[in-house]
Write a protein that binds this DNA or RNA. Structure first.
Length: 285
DNA sequence: CGTTCAACCTGGGCGC
DNA sequence: TGCGCCCAGGTTGAAC
Protein backbone atom coordinates (compact mmCIF):
# COMPACT_ATOMS: atom_id res chain seq x y z
CA UNK A 1 0.00 0.00 0.00
CA UNK A 2 2.01 2.87 1.22
CA UNK A 3 4.05 4.73 -1.31
CA UNK A 4 5.99 7.93 -0.82
CA UNK A 5 3.03 10.21 0.03
CA UNK A 6 1.56 7.75 2.52
CA UNK A 7 4.91 7.02 4.16
CA UNK A 8 5.76 10.72 4.31
CA UNK A 9 2.39 11.33 5.95
CA UNK A 10 3.19 8.61 8.49
CA UNK A 11 6.54 10.21 9.16
CA UNK A 12 4.99 13.62 9.74
CA UNK A 13 2.34 12.04 11.93
CA UNK A 14 4.95 10.67 14.32
CA UNK A 15 7.65 13.34 13.93
CA UNK A 16 6.68 14.74 17.33
CA UNK A 17 8.19 11.60 18.91
CA UNK A 18 11.67 13.05 18.38
CA UNK A 19 13.24 13.70 21.75
CA UNK A 20 11.12 11.13 23.57
CA UNK A 21 12.26 7.89 25.15
CA UNK A 22 11.09 4.37 24.39
CA UNK A 23 9.95 2.76 27.64
CA UNK A 24 8.88 -0.62 26.43
CA UNK A 25 8.75 -2.44 23.14
CA UNK A 26 6.59 -5.46 22.39
CA UNK A 27 6.14 -7.64 19.34
CA UNK A 28 2.88 -9.54 19.74
CA UNK A 29 2.62 -12.75 17.73
CA UNK A 30 -0.63 -12.46 15.85
CA UNK A 31 -0.44 -15.00 13.06
CA UNK A 32 1.13 -18.22 11.86
CA UNK A 33 4.40 -16.54 11.09
CA UNK A 34 5.49 -13.61 13.19
CA UNK A 35 6.51 -10.44 11.42
CA UNK A 36 10.08 -10.32 10.20
CA UNK A 37 12.27 -8.34 12.58
CA UNK A 38 16.01 -8.04 12.89
CA UNK A 39 17.14 -8.97 15.37
CA UNK A 40 14.44 -11.43 16.48
CA UNK A 41 11.64 -9.92 18.61
CA UNK A 42 12.94 -10.91 22.06
CA UNK A 43 16.34 -9.37 21.46
CA UNK A 44 14.98 -6.37 19.60
CA UNK A 45 12.72 -5.67 22.56
CA UNK A 46 15.67 -5.50 24.92
CA UNK A 47 17.71 -3.38 22.55
CA UNK A 48 14.97 -0.76 22.11
CA UNK A 49 13.99 -0.24 25.73
CA UNK A 50 15.44 2.97 27.19
CA UNK A 51 16.55 4.42 23.86
CA UNK A 52 15.65 7.98 22.93
CA UNK A 53 14.24 8.77 19.51
CA UNK A 54 16.60 11.38 18.13
CA UNK A 55 14.82 11.98 14.83
CA UNK A 56 12.20 10.50 12.52
CA UNK A 57 13.29 10.07 8.90
CA UNK A 58 11.86 8.76 5.68
CA UNK A 59 13.98 6.99 3.08
CA UNK A 60 11.87 6.10 0.06
CA UNK A 61 9.00 3.99 1.36
CA UNK A 62 10.53 3.40 4.79
CA UNK A 63 10.11 5.26 8.05
CA UNK A 64 13.29 5.32 10.12
CA UNK A 65 13.52 6.10 13.83
CA UNK A 66 17.01 7.31 14.68
CA UNK A 67 17.95 6.14 18.19
CA UNK A 68 20.62 7.44 20.52
CA UNK A 69 23.59 5.51 21.84
CA UNK A 70 23.07 4.11 25.34
CA UNK A 71 25.42 1.89 27.33
CA UNK A 72 26.77 -0.79 24.99
CA UNK A 73 24.50 0.35 22.19
CA UNK A 74 25.80 2.55 19.41
CA UNK A 75 23.54 4.96 17.63
CA UNK A 76 20.95 2.92 15.75
CA UNK A 77 18.25 3.23 13.13
CA UNK A 78 14.95 1.39 13.41
CA UNK A 79 13.93 0.87 9.80
CA UNK A 80 10.20 0.26 9.41
CA UNK A 81 9.07 -0.99 6.00
CA UNK A 82 5.26 -1.10 5.77
CA UNK A 83 5.18 -3.01 2.43
CA UNK A 84 1.53 -3.58 1.44
CA UNK A 85 -0.56 -3.04 4.55
CA UNK A 86 1.66 -1.77 7.34
CA UNK A 87 0.53 1.32 9.26
CA UNK A 88 2.12 3.42 11.97
CA UNK A 89 -0.50 4.60 14.45
CA UNK A 90 -0.44 6.76 17.55
CA UNK A 91 -4.05 5.79 18.33
CA UNK A 92 -5.79 2.43 18.68
CA UNK A 93 -5.86 0.34 15.50
CA UNK A 94 -9.23 -0.84 14.11
CA UNK A 95 -8.70 -4.19 15.85
CA UNK A 96 -6.10 -5.51 18.25
CA UNK A 97 -5.30 -8.35 15.90
CA UNK A 98 -2.41 -7.73 13.53
CA UNK A 99 -0.57 -5.48 15.96
CA UNK A 100 3.06 -6.29 15.14
CA UNK A 101 4.94 -3.79 17.28
CA UNK A 102 3.94 -1.57 20.15
CA UNK A 103 6.31 0.99 21.59
CA UNK A 104 5.42 2.51 24.93
CA UNK A 105 6.72 6.07 24.77
CA UNK A 106 7.68 8.05 27.83
CA UNK A 107 5.35 10.96 27.38
CA UNK A 108 1.78 11.95 27.98
CA UNK A 109 1.67 13.49 24.51
CA UNK A 110 2.21 10.13 22.86
CA UNK A 111 1.80 7.12 25.11
CA UNK A 112 2.49 4.64 22.35
CA UNK A 113 3.39 3.96 18.77
CA UNK A 114 1.80 0.96 17.08
CA UNK A 115 2.83 -0.83 13.90
CA UNK A 116 -0.33 -2.49 12.63
CA UNK A 117 -0.02 -4.72 9.59
CA UNK A 118 -2.97 -6.77 8.37
CA UNK A 119 -1.01 -8.95 5.99
CA UNK A 120 2.20 -9.00 7.96
CA UNK A 121 4.49 -8.51 4.98
CA UNK A 122 6.16 -5.51 6.59
CA UNK A 123 9.58 -5.64 8.21
CA UNK A 124 11.25 -3.94 11.16
CA UNK A 125 15.04 -3.87 11.40
CA UNK A 126 17.44 -2.22 13.82
CA UNK A 127 20.51 -1.25 11.83
CA UNK A 128 23.87 0.33 12.59
CA UNK A 129 25.33 3.13 10.50
CA UNK A 130 26.94 0.84 7.97
CA UNK A 131 23.85 -1.30 7.55
CA UNK A 132 21.70 1.80 7.14
CA UNK A 133 23.95 3.05 4.38
CA UNK A 134 23.68 -0.31 2.63
CA UNK A 135 19.89 -0.46 2.98
CA UNK A 136 18.93 3.15 2.35
CA UNK A 137 21.99 4.69 0.69
CA UNK A 138 22.41 5.73 -2.93
CA UNK A 139 23.27 2.20 -4.03
CA UNK A 140 19.75 1.09 -3.10
CA UNK A 141 17.67 4.24 -3.43
CA UNK A 142 17.72 6.78 -6.21
CA UNK A 143 16.83 10.43 -5.64
CA UNK A 144 13.62 10.96 -3.73
CA UNK A 145 10.56 11.32 -5.92
CA UNK A 146 9.74 14.73 -4.41
CA UNK A 147 12.95 16.22 -5.79
CA UNK A 148 13.85 13.99 -8.75
CA UNK A 149 15.02 15.71 -11.93
CA UNK A 150 14.67 14.78 -15.56
CA UNK A 151 18.40 14.48 -15.99
CA UNK A 152 18.64 12.12 -13.00
CA UNK A 153 15.99 9.87 -14.56
CA UNK A 154 17.57 10.05 -17.98
CA UNK A 155 20.95 9.17 -16.53
CA UNK A 156 19.65 6.14 -14.65
CA UNK A 157 17.07 4.83 -17.11
CA UNK A 158 17.80 6.45 -20.45
CA UNK A 159 19.47 3.44 -22.03
CA UNK A 160 17.12 0.83 -20.60
CA UNK A 161 14.91 -1.41 -22.72
CA UNK A 162 12.39 -1.68 -19.91
CA UNK A 163 8.92 -0.21 -20.18
CA UNK A 164 8.94 3.19 -18.50
CA UNK A 165 6.18 2.22 -16.04
CA UNK A 166 8.14 -0.79 -14.81
CA UNK A 167 11.29 1.33 -14.58
CA UNK A 168 9.61 3.97 -12.41
CA UNK A 169 8.93 1.27 -9.82
CA UNK A 170 12.67 0.59 -9.55
CA UNK A 171 13.67 2.18 -6.26
CA UNK A 172 17.31 2.45 -7.37
CA UNK A 173 16.22 4.78 -10.16
CA UNK A 174 13.89 6.97 -8.10
CA UNK A 175 12.78 6.38 -4.54
CA UNK A 176 9.20 6.28 -3.35
CA UNK A 177 7.11 5.70 -6.47
CA UNK A 178 4.78 2.69 -6.40
CA UNK A 179 1.98 1.32 -8.51
CA UNK A 180 -0.59 4.06 -7.91
CA UNK A 181 1.68 7.02 -8.45
CA UNK A 182 3.54 5.50 -11.41
CA UNK A 183 0.20 5.36 -13.22
CA UNK A 184 -0.82 8.87 -12.20
CA UNK A 185 2.57 10.35 -13.08
CA UNK A 186 2.61 8.86 -16.57
CA UNK A 187 -0.93 10.06 -17.19
CA UNK A 188 0.05 13.57 -16.16
CA UNK A 189 3.11 13.38 -18.40
CA UNK A 190 1.04 12.07 -21.31
CA UNK A 191 3.31 9.08 -21.87
CA UNK A 192 2.25 5.51 -22.63
CA UNK A 193 3.42 3.22 -19.81
CA UNK A 194 4.61 0.62 -22.32
CA UNK A 195 7.15 2.96 -23.91
CA UNK A 196 10.70 1.62 -23.71
CA UNK A 197 12.89 3.96 -21.68
CA UNK A 198 15.46 4.21 -24.47
CA UNK A 199 12.84 5.74 -26.75
CA UNK A 200 12.33 8.68 -24.43
CA UNK A 201 14.12 11.98 -25.00
CA UNK A 202 15.43 14.43 -22.41
CA UNK A 203 12.27 16.54 -22.71
CA UNK A 204 10.15 13.45 -21.95
CA UNK A 205 12.17 12.71 -18.82
CA UNK A 206 11.74 16.32 -17.76
CA UNK A 207 7.97 15.98 -18.14
CA UNK A 208 7.98 12.75 -16.15
CA UNK A 209 10.12 14.22 -13.38
CA UNK A 210 8.02 17.38 -13.20
CA UNK A 211 4.84 15.28 -13.04
CA UNK A 212 6.38 13.11 -10.31
CA UNK A 213 7.34 16.07 -8.14
CA UNK A 214 4.03 17.79 -8.63
CA UNK A 215 1.79 14.76 -8.07
CA UNK A 216 3.75 13.42 -5.11
CA UNK A 217 3.84 16.86 -3.51
CA UNK A 218 0.11 17.28 -3.93
CA UNK A 219 -0.54 13.76 -2.65
CA UNK A 220 1.54 14.51 0.45
CA UNK A 221 -0.46 17.69 0.99
CA UNK A 222 -3.64 15.59 0.78
CA UNK A 223 -2.17 12.99 3.16
CA UNK A 224 -1.97 10.14 0.67
CA UNK A 225 -4.47 7.78 -0.94
CA UNK A 226 -6.86 5.58 1.05
CA UNK A 227 -8.61 2.92 -1.01
CA UNK A 228 -11.12 0.50 0.49
CA UNK A 229 -11.46 -0.65 4.09
CA UNK A 230 -8.61 -1.26 6.48
CA UNK A 231 -6.28 0.33 4.06
CA UNK A 232 -3.93 3.23 4.53
CA UNK A 233 -4.67 5.63 7.39
CA UNK A 234 -2.80 8.57 8.87
CA UNK A 235 -1.05 8.08 12.21
CA UNK A 236 -4.17 9.36 13.97
CA UNK A 237 -6.38 7.04 11.90
CA UNK A 238 -7.87 9.39 9.36
CA UNK A 239 -8.17 8.58 5.65
CA UNK A 240 -6.07 10.32 3.04
CA UNK A 241 -7.79 12.41 0.38
CA UNK A 242 -5.69 12.02 -2.75
CA UNK A 243 -7.70 9.01 -3.99
CA UNK A 244 -10.28 11.54 -5.21
CA UNK A 245 -7.64 12.98 -7.50
CA UNK A 246 -6.77 9.68 -9.18
CA UNK A 247 -7.14 10.05 -12.94
CA UNK A 248 -6.43 6.48 -14.02
CA UNK A 249 -5.49 4.21 -11.12
CA UNK A 250 -8.30 1.76 -10.37
CA UNK A 251 -10.52 3.27 -13.08
CA UNK A 252 -10.45 0.57 -15.79
CA UNK A 253 -13.45 0.94 -18.10
CA UNK A 254 -14.39 4.33 -16.72
CA UNK A 255 -14.24 7.48 -18.80
CA UNK A 256 -10.99 9.42 -18.95
CA UNK A 257 -11.55 12.84 -17.42
CA UNK A 258 -9.61 14.44 -20.24
CA UNK A 259 -10.89 12.75 -23.42
CA UNK A 260 -13.90 10.70 -22.34
CA UNK A 261 -12.46 7.47 -23.71
CA UNK A 262 -12.18 4.38 -21.52
CA UNK A 263 -9.30 3.96 -19.09
CA UNK A 264 -7.52 0.70 -19.86
CA UNK A 265 -5.97 -1.86 -17.50
CA UNK A 266 -3.09 -4.03 -18.55
CA UNK A 267 -0.50 -6.11 -16.74
CA UNK A 268 3.19 -5.24 -16.68
CA UNK A 269 5.69 -7.15 -14.54
CA UNK A 270 2.81 -8.96 -12.86
CA UNK A 271 1.18 -5.75 -11.75
CA UNK A 272 -1.79 -3.76 -12.98
CA UNK A 273 -1.13 -0.69 -15.05
CA UNK A 274 -3.89 1.83 -15.71
CA UNK A 275 -3.70 4.39 -18.51
CA UNK A 276 -5.61 6.24 -21.20
CA UNK A 277 -4.49 5.10 -24.67
CA UNK A 278 -5.88 8.28 -26.16
CA UNK A 279 -4.11 10.77 -23.86
CA UNK A 280 -0.90 8.82 -23.34
CA UNK A 281 1.05 8.16 -26.50
CA UNK A 282 4.05 6.12 -27.26
CA UNK A 283 7.17 7.29 -29.00
CA UNK A 284 8.19 4.47 -31.28
CA UNK A 285 11.31 5.96 -32.72
C1' DC B 1 20.12 -7.31 -19.46
C1' DG B 2 15.27 -8.10 -18.83
C1' DT B 3 11.29 -10.80 -17.90
C1' DT B 4 8.57 -14.25 -15.39
C1' DC B 5 7.32 -16.72 -11.50
C1' DA B 6 6.92 -17.78 -6.79
C1' DA B 7 6.95 -16.55 -2.12
C1' DC B 8 5.93 -13.95 1.93
C1' DC B 9 0.50 -13.08 4.25
C1' DT B 10 -4.65 -11.74 5.02
C1' DG B 11 -8.99 -10.72 3.41
C1' DG B 12 -12.52 -8.65 0.17
C1' DG B 13 -15.17 -9.52 -3.91
C1' DC B 14 -17.14 -12.29 -7.43
C1' DG B 15 -19.06 -16.27 -10.08
C1' DC B 16 -21.22 -20.53 -9.53
C1' DT C 1 -24.00 -20.27 2.42
C1' DG C 2 -19.91 -22.11 0.75
C1' DC C 3 -16.11 -22.92 -2.42
C1' DG C 4 -12.70 -21.61 -5.48
C1' DC C 5 -10.60 -18.14 -7.79
C1' DC C 6 -8.71 -13.42 -8.62
C1' DC C 7 -7.28 -9.23 -6.77
C1' DA C 8 -4.59 -5.82 -3.67
C1' DG C 9 -0.46 0.12 -2.20
C1' DG C 10 5.84 -4.06 -1.99
C1' DT C 11 10.11 -6.57 -2.17
C1' DT C 12 13.24 -10.34 -3.11
C1' DG C 13 15.49 -14.23 -5.22
C1' DA C 14 15.63 -17.93 -8.56
C1' DA C 15 15.10 -19.48 -13.18
C1' DC C 16 15.20 -18.73 -18.03
Amino acid sequence: MPELPEVETMRRGIAHLAGLRIDTASFPRSSVRPIVTRPAPARLRRRLAGRTIVAVHRFGKRVVLELDAVGPENRGWLVIEPRMTGLLLVVDPPTRTHVRMELGIDSRACPRLIFWDRRGLGTIRLLDAGELAAACGPARLGPDGLVVTGSALAERLGGSRRAVKVALLDQRAVAGIGNIYAAEILFAAGIDPRTACRRLRPADWERIAAAARSILEKAVRMEGSSIGDETYRTADNRTGRFQRQHRVYGRAGEACHACGGPVVRLVQAQRSTFFCPCCQWQRRR
